[in-house]
């Protein structure tokens, strides 16, 4: 879907709808949606593209507005989430990975994605296809309250179809292990920003080992002070460079062992 190739009349209506969404004018959004449908244009393709672009640009109000459009024209809510909102999160994630975007851009994109997701969530539950997505238990280790990085990893994992169990920050080692057991997690993701709390990570890995769960679970560790060497030393599977890298790594790794991937979108 290239907007440039659309008729001028359609492009104008889309712009007006952007403005109505920005100003949160419900009636105008509905009216303009009708008008766009009347033009006979492929509204689903336009809406999905707009959703991804609004999330990529971190436009909260516009993401919400276009999510309303998606619901109004009857796009499958799962499709609106994965091909629209989450696709936008992946776009900005890729840019960040290439050094073309900064953390605040990821954060406003994440917030735009969640705003849209909130509208979709009642319909998502109703539409659940039955297959549970792979679960990742995620948290910042004990003694560390920095959770921006952890939240970004969570967002990008969610955007890639994973179900995240977020334990928050300052999480004691045994809570990671308990949660991994309770939710039958495919992976555990631990984060820390401080050199002072890095030692909590091997603690969790040792506990997973002694409870016999380590072989079935991928362990990801991340945060500014960590290196690949350190990750290897403590027995983690990976220390991805950033949030986008984490999501990509897990997706790729699981698709290489097919038994784990059947539930992934």
């Amino acid at each position: 879907m290239e907007f440039d190739e659309l008729p001028e009349e359609v492009r104008e209506l889309i712009e007006q709808l952007d403005e109505a969404a920005e100003d949160e004018e419900e009636e105008a959004i509905e009216e303009l949606t009708e008008k766009l449908l009347d033009t006979g244009v492929d509204m689903e393709a336009i809406t999905l593209k707009k959703l991804s672009l609004c999330v990529m640009d971190g436009e909260e109000e516009m993401s919400v507005g276009w999510t309303k459009v998606a619901l109004k024209i009857g796009i499958d809510p799962f499709k609106a989430l994965l091909k629209g909102l989450a696709a936008g999160m992946s776009l900005i994630g890729d840019k960040y990975e290439k050094g073309e975007a900064f953390v605040p851009q990821l954060m406003i994109a994440s917030s735009a994605m969640y705003e849209g997701m909130e509208l979709l969530s009642p319909y998502l539950k109703a539409n659940s296809s039955g297959a549970d997505p792979s679960t990742v238990v995620i948290g910042t280790v004990e003694g560390d309250v920095h959770d921006i990085g952890k939240n970004l990893v969570k967002t990008l994992l969610s955007a890639n179809g994973f179900n995240c169990v977020d334990l928050g920050n300052d999480v004691e080692a045994d809570r990671f292990v308990e949660a991994a057991k309770e939710y039958q997690a495919t992976a555990v993701s631990m984060s820390t920003l401080m050199t002072t709390t890095m030692a909590e990570m091997p603690k969790v890995i040792n506990m997973l080992e002694s409870s016999g769960m380590r072989d079935k679970i991928k362990v990801m560790v991340g945060g500014a002070p960590l290196s690949t060497d350190y990750a290897a030393k403590i027995g983690a599977d990976v220390s991805p460079k950033d949030a986008a890298g984490a999501a990509n790594w897990l997706k790729t790794t699981l698709s290489e062992s097919p038994s784990d991937t059947e539930n992934l979108n």
């Binding site: 953390v103 605040p104 954060m107 406003i108």
Partner: peptide, 11 residues
Amino acid sequence: GAENLSMLSIK
């Protein structure tokens, strides 16, 4: 809050 700072820094 650091998260708000980060987002406000772009907004």
